[in-house]
Amino acid sequence: MNFPHRHLLGIEQLSRDEIVTVLDLARKFREVLDRPIPVVPALRGKTVINLFFEPSTRTATSFTLAASRLSCQCVNFSLAASSTRKGESLLDTCRNIEAMRVDGLVIRHAVPGAPHFLARHLRAFIVNAGDGAHEHPTQALLDAFTLRERFGDLSGLKVLIVGDIAHSRVARSNILCLTRLGARVYVCGPPTLIPPGIEQLGCEVFYRLDRILREVNVVNMLRLQTERMAAGMLPSTREYRQLYGLTRERLAGLDPATVIIHPGPVNWGVEMDYDVAELPQALIMNQVKNGVAVRMAVLYLLAGGQEEAT
């Protein structure tokens, strides 16, 4: 299989073919998940640990389930009980964990590059489950998987990412992943939340949602963190909803073929009105389901699973 990487640190390191390798393998695992007993022995005897230094429910759970469905042991590292509270450095913490013989570390950390730093110092494989505002590669892979399920080939597909681009690792990974698969990517948000030079990643920038919304096949809404108001980047959630929200009024004017995705968790009433939840073109639950299959593929490729995976 065409996947010559020891770690999954970001989409940046992956070629188009390598992305397709992961997605094709994920399709096989997706079939496993629909079986009466959705478990395969592919990674029996392997151990991974989820190290989440930032709160997460769905990503951590998704990785845990992905591991267990491959018969891989998975330990969850609890932030509250961790020694990082006692002032131990990230490297010391991870070296200690590695010494207990784990094969891989799935890490989420607030500091960009933290997984890259660990990859240089540890022997275990590293999966980046989100590093600050840098990358969230498995989210991008599951989004691409979900869109391929709907559209097949992504060449020429127009995808609009809306929201807090500056603080979004999902935006960065999705721009890289979707453009490598041939899609055209647009980003839209208030200028205070658009980072300088983002167009160099291969996207086009819009500040006004209504100028681009009806031109695209896919709308990828992002969660708006309420901290942004406190930091003076936005005046209010009310004005944000009016300018950048997927409101009832905007939905009414939208082509029903336009697909809506969101990495979750959704701030209903801020970036999207609750009506979206009921729409058939909202693929949010498909994303969640596909996330397990994509993460199975990633763990399988990095942990060196046996051929005949499924």
């Binding site: 960009p112 590059g113 505002a133 960065r172 990643l201």
Partner: peptide, 13 residues
């Protein structure tokens, strides 16, 4: 430094 590199690497500028 704030610019295309910090944006790509997700570093605060």
């Amino acid at each position: 430094n704030e610019g295309p590199v910090s944006t790509r690497l997700g570093l605060h500028g």
